[in-house]
Amino acid sequence: MQSTAAEDYVKAIYHHTEWQPEPVTPSQLATRLGLANSTVTEMVKKLAAAGLVHHRPYGAIELTSEGAALAVRQVRRHRVVETWLVERHGYDWDEVHDEAEILEHALSDRLLDSIARSLGDPVRDPHGDPIPAADGTVVRPDAVLLADAAVGHAGAVVRISDSDPAMLRFLADAGIALDASLEVLGQKPYSGSIQVRTDAGTVDLGPQVAQAVWLSA
């Protein structure tokens, strides 16, 4: 089963567990894909029949080894394309996701590998997500979510979720990008914000941002 839909589904399942351990539920998958629960349920049944996922009724969805291999292949394609668009075509990091969603299905393996070589075989995309190697190897940085970082924790930004383009623009304006140095100065429990020090000064970051930024551990 190698349809575009199957590739998108296994990639979404992979994304859910890439930076946290809890498996995805059908309703969470439906939300991530922007589809009705019934549509997702039917597709998950097809994926299970094709040997790409494990799923029991009302339970979580997990990739099989075959499903994981397909997901890693698609993740590599998507992230190489995002990197290519930023580095060679002048796209900003908040503009590449939708373009990559289209192009990742259209490029041949030969062209994809040629693009990767021309970029120096990058190991991360513009948002810090690891780019799997051609053999499927994935090297993920040791990182801590900003929301979980203790007061006084200082580190470099190693990953920023690309799920919200507006947030990426906000962070860029605040001088928070990959490899930027951050120090957690304090938490404001009643407002839910976290105050951090950057190279440009201090800034208060809300809960949504704190759940989207990872620092070196």
Rank of each mutant, 00 (worst) to 15 (best):
S27R: 12
L111T: 14
G136L: 12
A69G: 06
A177F: 04
D113K: 10
L85Q: 02
L215W: 02
T83H: 00
D92Q: 15
A48Q: 12
T31Y: 03
S3T: 15
T39K: 06
A6K: 03
R32F: 04
L35N: 07
A50M: 04
A133F: 11
A147I: 05
S181C: 07
R169W: 02
H54E: 12
D173Y: 09
K45L: 08
V138L: 15
A147E: 11
G67R: 06
V158L: 09
T39D: 08
W84E: 13
E42R: 15
T137M: 12
L33H: 00
V75A: 14
Q2Y: 09
D199T: 13
D135W: 08
P132Q: 10
F170M: 09
L103Y: 00
R88N: 08
A49M: 04
I194K: 01
S108T: 15
R76V: 11
P132A: 13
L171E: 01
A60G: 04
P141N: 02
V138H: 04
I176L: 05
D121V: 06
D129Q: 13
A147R: 14
A210P: 00
A49Q: 15
H97F: 14
P126A: 00
R169Y: 08
D109W: 11
T31C: 05
D109Y: 05
L178N: 03
H153V: 06
V144H: 03
L111W: 10
S193C: 09
R140G: 00
R32C: 02
E183F: 05
